[in-house]
Design a protein around this nucleic acid. Sequence first.
DNA 1: CTGTGACTAAGAGTCCGTA
DNA 2: TTACGGACTCTTAGTCACA
Lengths: 72, 72
Amino acid sequence: MEDVCAILARNIKAARKRLNLSQEDLAARAEIDRTYVSGIERQVRNPTITVVAKFAEALETTTADLLTDESR
Amino acid sequence: MEDVCAILARNIKAARKRLNLSQEDLAARAEIDRTYVSGIERQVRNPTITVVAKFAEALETTTADLLTDESR
DNA sequence: CTGTGACTAAGAGTCCGTA
DNA sequence: TTACGGACTCTTAGTCACA
């Protein structure tokens, strides 16, 4: 079973690219530090669900979507 | 926009009832502390996504499902 | 534009109990 | 069976300088 952090990292990165945003742009939108965004995409962070919710809003999607394993 | 913790609390409680589990049963299954389960259902906790994943496994569902707002 | 190490404050998560 | 409290440890939140 794949780690939920890996799924989140992949989905955030994909959604970010889709919107043509840099990590910096996303950080600004979500009101999160740039380096924190980096840490999540690199899977060195294990965020709380409220942080994921912030990302979801900034990426114009839902919390559930960011945690959905698209690979199956 | 409704808080993600409220959605989680509602969904966990519903899934737990559906399986006829007590908070203690669920805690044992998910290998999470009994008082922590209580705290999440009362929305006084803001869990990390790995904990939500543990709940999902114990409740025979997915992380995304536990964070899906069924009220819409 | 991104990765990384280091740091403090806050809160996640555990364990003991009581009503 | 659940809510709630105290006390505790350890990780996350959030930020910085630097590569």
